[in-house]
């Protein structure tokens, strides 16, 4: 986020004062790694409970709609089930406030929305939130980037480490690399986790 303020950056949590020490591991244990959709995607291929996914979509839509009302933002909400996850999309005119320069507001809002869903369903939500088609656009750009990298690695025969990316971005890259017949892995810790692309062996 580009808050023009000296406290932003390396100490982004500063504004929350000293209460952080009271964090309860118990409270957060069930909802950790909520955006780890990347790893989860291969992990649970159980049958999708469409009823649950629709319920997730409804809860998420209420949560987002409430925010739009309060912030006086125009936006319509579309709900969909895509594969194994609920997708809630906000479409409307000017929604930059909910996306951010590089999608960081969207990621934050998605995280909160998943927590709101989790509170009501008791199930870890993998719901995807999109605003103004940001993810759809980003997805096609990243898939293209992934294909370019695959060609480069194939040509050079050398592994290539990419920049740090969000789980959403990494997932798209992994898929593009796999489609090109190469192998990729993620390494490092969030938020510096990055994809490494390997030549076919």
């Amino acid at each position: 986020m580009s808050i023009p303020d000296e406290t932003v950056g390396d100490e982004r949590g500063e504004g929350f004062g000293t209460m952080v020490s009271t964090e309860s591991a118990e409270d957060t244990a069930g909802v950790t790694d909520l955006d780890g959709g990347e790893e989860l995607d291969d992990a649970d291929d159980g049958p999708a409970d469409v009823g649950l996914l629709e319920q997730e979509g409804d809860i998420a839509a209420d949560y987002i709609e409430g925010l739009l009302d309060i912030a006086d933002l125009d936006g319509d909400i579309d709900m969909d089930v895509e594969g194994e996850r609920a997708v809630v999309s906000v479409v409307g005119a000017t929604l930059d406030e909910l996306v951010g320069d590089d999608g960081e507001v969207l990621e934050a809002l998605q995280e909160l929305t998943r927590l709101a869903v989790h509170r009501q369903t008791g199930v870890r939500a993998r719901l995807m939130l999109d605003v103004g088609g940001f993810r759809a656009r980003r997805r096609s750009e990243l898939a293209e980037f992934g294909r370019t990298i695959a060609q480069e690695v194939e040509r050079t025969g050398e592994p290539k480490k990419l920049r740090a990316m969000s789980p959403f971005e990494r997932k798209i890259i992994h898929d593009a690399i796999a489609s090109a017949g190469l192998r990729s892995e993620s390494e490092g810790e969030e938020p510096n986790r990055r994809v490494v692309v390997f030549p076919a062996s």
Binding site: M1, R12, G13, G15, F16, V20, T28, L98, G100, E104, V105, E107, A108, L109, E111, L112, L115
Partner: peptide, 8 residues
């Protein structure tokens, strides 16, 4: 979560 609230 606190960071996400602050970002939004």
């Amino acid at each position: 979560t606190a960071r996400a609230l602050r970002t939004v």
